[in-house]
Amino acid sequence: EITKEQQALMKVIADAYNRHQIPQDVAKKLLQDQYSAEENFLLLTEMATSQVQVLVEFTKNIPGFLSLNHEDQIALLKGSAVEAMFLRSAQVFSKKMPNGHNEVLEDRIRRSGISEEFMTPMFNFYKSIGVLHMVQEEQALLTAITILTPDRPYVKDQQAVERLQEPMLDLLRKLCVLQHPQKPQYFACLLGRLTELRTLNYYHAEMLTSWRMN
């Protein structure tokens, strides 16, 4: 059973998540005509910057986040930005887009110069998220849980972060039971994706280096 307080929390998180999306004009550019390698690089950089801004705006709305120590806020965002971006991108790929748009996007990313060894796990992750068919509330909560990971580097007051993360985990667990009664392992599957995300985050620096080099 989801309590009234939990329903309110879910609404705040889901609303904030829906409100803060990459601006249409930035997203649209991805589907436009051919770009040179350099333009492609700049475009993806612009997208990444926009994603970080959107992520920060979303995070500001997570109840209790702004009451954390300011440097801890930055440490949490810095530690989770890449994972949150992969999560958001995975959801873009899971959405039903107009015919051909998925292919254009995938092709653009595949031709961006990132080495194949990083590309494969990334698209595998997108697929593994896609098959879960998460509802928006689950996506929003999973992102909030990712951001509120207490053991990110340089976080001083881990307990304060845990106190914010625990209610989200409890709510997500209940939501999974309600939304997917026929899949008792669903919550565990979602947490498993977070582990996968950590691996992607770990290789992200190397991935960027390969991108820049190419």
Partner: peptide, 21 residues
């Protein structure tokens, strides 16, 4: 432009709400 900033700079500015400055 924001694209020339590092991740931490973008986060700090967005947290302070003055990315346009």
């Amino acid at each position: 432009p924001a694209s020339n900033l590092g991740l931490e700079d973008i986060i700090r500015k967005a947290l302070m709400g003055n990315l346009e400055e």
